[in-house]
Design a protein around this nucleic acid. Structure first.
Lengths: 105, 105
DNA sequence: CCCATCGTACGATATCCGTCGTAGTTCGAT
DNA sequence: ATCGAACTACGACGGATATCGTACGATGGG
């Protein structure tokens, strides 16, 4: 087995664009994911969140969130553990995340 | 001098959905409009903002912002004056608007 | 009244995006 | 080594949307 550097690409804080973040948060499914992540300090596997969508769509949404700079994704066994990029987002856009999370469902 | 009450429909605060607000803010053109509105207390006419788009596209974006609950639009002569719905947004999603407006351009 | 100005309405178009199924990869367990 | 589970890659498809031009409506000044 070759040792594969399969680290997923994440944007640096200075590469994060507000339009992409807002676009990422604007989707109902992704908002559900972000809300779930907000309640977990350690991060959770994408597959654990109950969502009325297929596996591949799930992958698509997680990638969208990752590429926008909203979540970290790390490999752990065969799972991908996602966590909110709270610190980066709070620093870049203070109040934004809390404002979004405070919305009634 | 006829009846001046041709009010445009605006959502009530309890009708405003976070997904619609985020979607509205996620567009570069609309974000430019919101930034311009944020710098004016009295509101400004849509047509005054320099934008690389046509008249009809402008109308489309203003309507999107209005229907999402992001702006008030009132008629004034032949113009439409837009203002940010700061109070409503701050109450519904405290920090969100400030967070968005704090983003580097 | 005429008309220029500002905005809206409507239809057309191209692109984006959320969704899916299928096939393939990686990893841990048997 | 083989298998199943978790996830990704890719292509396809349909609906949403950003854009435009043109036509129309309303307003206020000559």
């Amino acid at each position: 087995m070759g040792d594969m550097d399969h680290a997923l690409p994440h944007p640096e804080p200075d590469e994060i664009r507000i339009e992409a973040v807002l676009q990422a948060l604007a989707d109902p499914v992704r908002l559900t994911i972000v809300r779930a992540l907000a309640e977990s300090e350690t991060g959770i596997a994408c597959g654990c969140i109950e969502l009325p969508i297929s596996k591949s769509t799930r992958t698509h949404h997680i990638r969208t969130l990752r590429e926008a700079g909203v979540v970290w994704v790390r490999a752990e066994g065969t799972s991908r553990i996602s966590t909110l990029r709270r610190e980066d987002l709070d620093k870049l856009y203070p109040g934004l995340l809390d404002g979004v999370l405070s919305a009634r469902r």
